[in-house]
Write a protein that binds this DNA or RNA. Sequence first.
DNA 1: AATAACCGGGGACGGTCTCCCCGTTTAGCC
DNA 2: GGCTAAACGGGGAGACCGTCCCCGGTTATT
Lengths: 215, 215
Amino acid sequence: MPAMTAPAPRKAPRPRADALRNRERIVTAAREMFVEHGPDVPLDEIARRAGVGNATVYRNFPDRDALVREVVCSVMDRTVEAAELALAETGDAFAALERFVHAAADERISALCPMVSSTFDQNHPDLVASRESVERLVEEIMGRAKAAGQLRPDVGVGDLLIVVSQLSRPPAGTDCMRGDRFVHRHLQLFLDGLRAPARSVLPGEAVDIRELLDS
Amino acid sequence: MPAMTAPAPRKAPRPRADALRNRERIVTAAREMFVEHGPDVPLDEIARRAGVGNATVYRNFPDRDALVREVVCSVMDRTVEAAELALAETGDAFAALERFVHAAADERISALCPMVSSTFDQNHPDLVASRESVERLVEEIMGRAKAAGQLRPDVGVGDLLIVVSQLSRPPAGTDCMRGDRFVHRHLQLFLDGLRAPARSVLPGEAVDIRELLDS
DNA sequence: AATAACCGGGGACGGTCTCCCCGTTTAGCC
DNA sequence: GGCTAAACGGGGAGACCGTCCCCGGTTATT
C-alpha cells in the first residue's frame, strides 16, 4: 500500500458523515432489540427499528457476529463509563455501587448476555479489553465498599453482574419495555440484600467473572 | 357423572397406560426446554428430549398453545404445592417465604414466562384457576410475614414472582443449566433485601400480579 | 453543478418448522 | 398365550421466514 497524499490512516478514503451516523443508529437499535427479543432477531427488524434499509446493515457488518460483538463492546464501554462516573461523583462507596447498578440497568447491560452464547468468539481482542476494564472497575467499587464495612464480603463481581443483567431483562417474549417500571425497585431490593452486616449465610461460593465464560 | 361399571367418566374408552406416561414426559421435557431455550423451541426437539416421536406430541396436543398452556398450569400447580408445603412445615412466616422461593426456583417457575407472550389466551379457565390459587397462597405467606414484622411492607406478590422468575432463568441463549449453582445464592441475597426493617425506600409502587398480564 | 458513494426496497435462495401418512409395535383383554 | 385396536416412530411434503444480492434513486462532498 503506497503512501498517499490524503490523511487517510489506511485505505479509508473517508467515510461519509451520515454513514457513521447510520452505523451508530444500527448499533443502538440492535442493542435494544437484542435485549427485548434475544440474540436471534431478524436483521431486517433491526434495520427497520434503526430507520434504515436492510442493505445498510449488511454493508456495515459482514455477518451477524460482527454486529453482536459491536453491541457487546458498546455496552461494556458504557458500563465502564457509568462505573467511573459513580466512583467520581461520590465519596460513599456503597452509594457509588448503587449508582452504578442503576446506571448499568439503564444502559441495558443485559444486552451482553449473548456473549455467552454458543457461536461467539469469546477471545476477540476488543472483547477481552472491554471485559477486563469492566471487571477492574467493578472490583474497585466493590472492594472499597467492602473495606468500608458497607458491603457484605461474601459476594463477587460475577454475582453482581449476573443479577443486574437478569433483573434488567424484559420478562419474557414480550415486546414492551414496561418492565422498566419495576426494574429499579427490584435492583434496590437486591442492593439492600448486599448491605453489611449480612442477614444470612449464602450457599455456594462468590462468583468470579471468569466462571461466566466457559460452558 | 352417571355410575358405570367401568371407571370411564365420559366417552373416554380408556386411555392407555403408556399414553399418559408419555404425555407426562412430554410436559416435563417441554417445561425444561421452554426454560432453557424460550417458548419457540421446535416441537421436534421437545419430542426428542422426551424420548418419543414427534407424532406423539402432535397427537397429544392439537397445537403449540395447548402444550404451552399445559406446561404453565403444571408449573403453577407445583408452585402452589410448594407454597402449601412451606406454610405447613414451619411456623415462622419468613422461613416459609424462603422455603417457597427456593422451591419455586427448583420447580422452574420461570417457565411460566411465556404466559405473558403475545399469542396466548390469558383467560383460559384452567389458567385463571391456577393463577388465582398461586396469588392467594403467596399473598397468604407474605401477609403473615408482614404481620409478624419480618417482611418489609412495601413489596407485593408481583415483585416476588417477577424476581424469582427472572433470577432462576438461565442467563441467555445457553443450553447448560450450570446457572443452578448461582441461583440460590442470588435468591438469598434478594430475600435478605426483603427483610424488615427496610434498608431503603423503593421507587415505584408495589407490584400486583394483575399488572403482569396486560400489555 | 458534477460526481461518486451511499441508501432503500424488492426478490430469489436456502434452511427450518410444522404437520400428515403409513408400517410397526405394544398394551389391554379374553 | 393369542387377538384387536390403539398408540408409536420415522420420513417426507408444504409453507414460512431469515439472509443476502441487485439496481434505481438520493445525498453529501469539491
